[in-house]
Write a protein that binds this DNA or RNA. Structure first.
Length: 430
RNA sequence: GGAGAAGUACCCAAGUGGUGAAGGGGCUCCCCUGCUAAGGGAGUAGGGCUCGAAAGGGUCGCGAGGGUUCAAAUCCCUCCUUCUCCGCCA
């Protein structure tokens, strides 16, 4: 969400930005916003005048009543009453115009960082850098569900019966591996100075509508029947929700948080064969990072955040690359974003395991996350960022494929061994 | 889940329909005193929006949102949170 003052002063820049994102159908909204904004302010000014008059007269009535001048008071009452219709109309106009402005401001995209590559859609995203050699083993790498089954580590059939498609039972070593990765991720981030959080896994509707668009809400969120509660789709929802309508002292920034939560997503829409198994599912678990910081520090944190994920995967011997989101693929709220992708030896390509975003002040403006400066009086909006540390079981796909040996065993990288009871490898069940 | 009570500033707290939302503590500054302690004075209700070149004005704001009224911290409705007691529970 942009600053309305910025739109007033720089309508051309806003339009230019819309074009860069190939959303030309939104161009007209800029002028509409300016028009409704003008109408709003006119109504507002007139309404304020009338309110001032009413306040004045009300006080007068109070004075007259105190002196017992009832008739005079009644006369003034009538004057105020005569203004009632216009006041009511203006109040309605004010609200209506403001809503028209807000509706459009919500979908006018945030100004993208100058460094964002221009492109129409995800096919034009740009590979930035590779970390680790993408290996091609000289044996066949099976489908990840088959690898898991070779360890007697997954039961999808049972999950379909109890919960339907998109759920899973993990068991034995695979389940333990799953938990180990999360525990390791937690300690990894704590080691980098982040504060560990376990947030609420359900949030109220007002928080939900604050942190996402209506369309997202429909396509992602599970609602609890008979309660004003939704299952979170990511801990970012509760973590950012925590800051809604807060004024934060400047010296409390940056807040560098890492949160664990299960994530629940409806994943409405059809998905291809490579998204079967445990790739795209209704329930997974995630270690996340969230940063709330001063505006001038957000580019620095953005680089640190994705670097954390890269480093994490590298300690588990998984080759990764960073892929920058081009302008057209960048979500409207974001200034800049990149995916961290892990190498799949089976598919011989990289696939998404994490996503790092700098939202600038757009999310903070929308949610009222403000900062009180140490010097000076003017409050300002914080910058917010978020990134995935790791999200199994999808991550297990990369882990198993990259650590699979020719004999069907899976080696456990040194960093993870303490969480796996010291085991150096997992051996397939007969 | 049930019953009761409460929510006003950084903290405590007065205020049950009427002209600027008391008072105290704390904090900041000044004076007096002069190593400390004590005393006196001033300031301290945030934030949004809006009009204005500016100075400054207006509006909204007493947990949130509605309503009644010329006028609401105050009356009514819904919700949230906290406390006390009861019930249930890993």
């Amino acid at each position: 969400m942009l600053d309305i003052k910025f739109v007033r002063q720089n309508p051309d820049a806003v339009k230019e930005n819309i074009k860069k994102k190939f959303q030309d159908d939104k161009l007209a909204m800029v002028d509409e916003v300016l028009d409704f904004d003008q109408k709003y302010r006119t109504a507002r000014t007139r309404a304020d005048e009338l309110r001032a008059m009413r306040n004045q007269k009300s006080k007068l009535i109070g004075g007259l009543m105190a002196k017992g001048q009832k008739d005079e008071a009644e006369a003034v009452k009538a004057e105020v009453k005569a203004m009632a219709d216009e006041m009511e109309q203006l109040a309605e106009d004010e609200k209506a115009y403001q809503e028209e402005v807000r509706k459009r401001m919500m979908v006018i995209p945030n100004i993208i960082d100058p460094s964002v590559p221009i492109g129409k859609d995800d096919s034009e995203n740009v590979e930035l850098e590779r970390f680790g050699e993408p290996v091609t083993p000289d044996f066949e790498v099976p489908y990840h569900v088959d690898i898991m089954e070779s360890f007697d580590g997954i039961d999808l059939d049972a999950a379909r019966r109890t919960s339907g498609n998109g759920f899973y039972y993990l068991k034995g070593d695979i389940a333990r591996l799953h938990s180990s990765i999360l525990s390791y991720a937690r300690d990894f981030m704590i080691g980098r100075g982040f504060t560990y959080y376990i947030p609420p896994f359900m949030i109220r509707s007002d928080v939900v509508s604050g942190v996402m668009s209506f369309a997202e809400m429909e396509n992602m969120m599970y609602k609890i029947e008979g309660e004003d509660l939704y299952l979170i789709g990511t801990s970012e929802h509760s973590m950012i929700g925590k800051f809604i309508d807060t004024i934060n002292e400047e010296e409390t920034l940056p807040q560098t948080l890492t949160s664990y939560s299960p994530c629940f997503r409806k994943e409405v829409g059809a998905h291809g064969i490579e998204e079967r198994g445990v790739y795209r599912i209704h329930q997974f678990e995630k270690q996340e990072m969230v940063v709330v910081c001063k505006p001038e520090e957000s580019p620095m944190w953005y680089d640190k955040l994705w670097q954390n994920t890269v480093d994490f995967f590298r300690t588990l011997d998984i080759p990764v690359r960073t892929l920058e989101c081009c302008s057209g693929d960048l979500a409207d709220l974001k200034v800049k974003s990149c995916d961290v992708e892990a190498w799949s030896p089976r598919q011989q390509k990289y696939f998404e395991v994490g996503s790092c975003s700098n939202l600038g002040d757009a999310q903070a403006r929308r949610l009222g996350i403000r900062v009180r400066p140490k010097e000076g009086k003017e409050l300002y909006f914080a910058h917010t960022l978020n990134n995935t540390v790791v999200a199994p079981p999808r991550m297990l796909i990369a882990f198993l494929e990259n650590n699979l040996q020719a004999d069907g065993s899976v080696s456990i990288p040194a960093a993870l061994r303490p969480y796996m009871g010291g085991q150096e490898k997992l051996t397939p069940k007969a």
